[in-house]
Amino acid sequence: MENVISLNDIVVSFDGETVLNNINLDIKDKEFVTLLGPSGCGKTTTLRIIGGFIQPDSGEVIFENKNITKLPPYRRNVNTVFQKYALFPHLNVFENVAFGLRVRKLPEKEINKAVAEMLELVNLKGFEERNVQNLSGGQQQRVAIARALVNKPKVLLLDEPLGALDLKLRKEMQTELKRIQQSLEITFIYVTHDQEEALTMSDTVVVMKDGSIQQIGRPVDIYNEPQNAFVADFIGESNIIDGIMLKDRLVAICGHEFECVDSGFDEKQPVDVVIRPEDITLTANADEKIHGVVRSVTFKGVHYEMVVDSSDFSWLVHSTKAPEVGSEVGILFGPDDIHIMNKMKG
């Protein structure tokens, strides 16, 4: 597949502070790409670079093999759904959606048809005359999406579009957005700091931290093969333990040797060892290599979340069965459950 957008060595700084540090990203046609990362990591800035609202200090933006780094936003075949919707308050729903078409001076008939189609797509039929200020958050959201999509952009940029919605509405809109993306076959670049949202909706997830990309990959790969401890922890709560690589497929954790499946590290190299809470099994046998005392048990709906204190680490464990608080348990995990990562710099 062809790349629609490529960011090459993008650097952005505000007031001498580097906000994006050498971003390289290729986005394929019709892909649902999510930029995921904690607040302030540069997600919005990346989106604004693609939208044309800021110029990078260096680097280039390539759109369908053309360099568009210097092109102003109104000349780009890209539309944005803004974080707070940015609907035009003096226009009604119809006129908001028709805005881009009117700018392009399309004939009235075509405008009516396109807007009606779009409002149908986002389930807002019959809302044409409504004042946008009197709509609910979810409805405003859908107007914003219709307003952007009606222009049939090659790429749609969405900046935390579901951030202001309650959980139930969020879930509904997630499915809705995915449906729209697939039926229109438009590339979506989606920003969120919600890892679950990123994993469920995307074809590709881009994990960012402090203005750098940490990992790019399919949701499954990001989840199962996180490249470093930050990604592992951000994608889902994890146990991150200091370890030392003894040789290929053998690692020392908490003073004990464990078999693992990773290789290619130096001998005696300090590493981060990541073990997911759901991969840990608790046994009643307190003679295991690692054992501890159950400090707390919390019911989470589907599973119990437990904290088990061993001599040098507090383990987070998810399981459908829970031992008593205060009981001695053994902590078990297999070679497949151990993920070895290079120590993060800094």
């Binding site: 939208g51 609202f53 102003p72 936003p73 109104y74 890209v78 539309n79 944005t80 803004f82 974080q83 707070k84 940015a86 609907l87 035009f88 308050p89 003096h90 805005f99 881009g100 700018v103 392009r104 307003r147 952007a148 222009n151």
Partner: peptide, 27 residues
């Protein structure tokens, strides 16, 4: 003013001056 409407107008194809007249001025 509703934040980002000036940018939204540009995003939808208006140049800076037209964006101002069409969305900022009414506000």
């Amino acid at each position: 003013m509703t934040p980002h409407i000036y940018e939204a107008a540009q995003d939808l194809g208006c140049g800076p001056f037209k964006s101002f007249i069409k969305v900022v001025l009414p506000e």
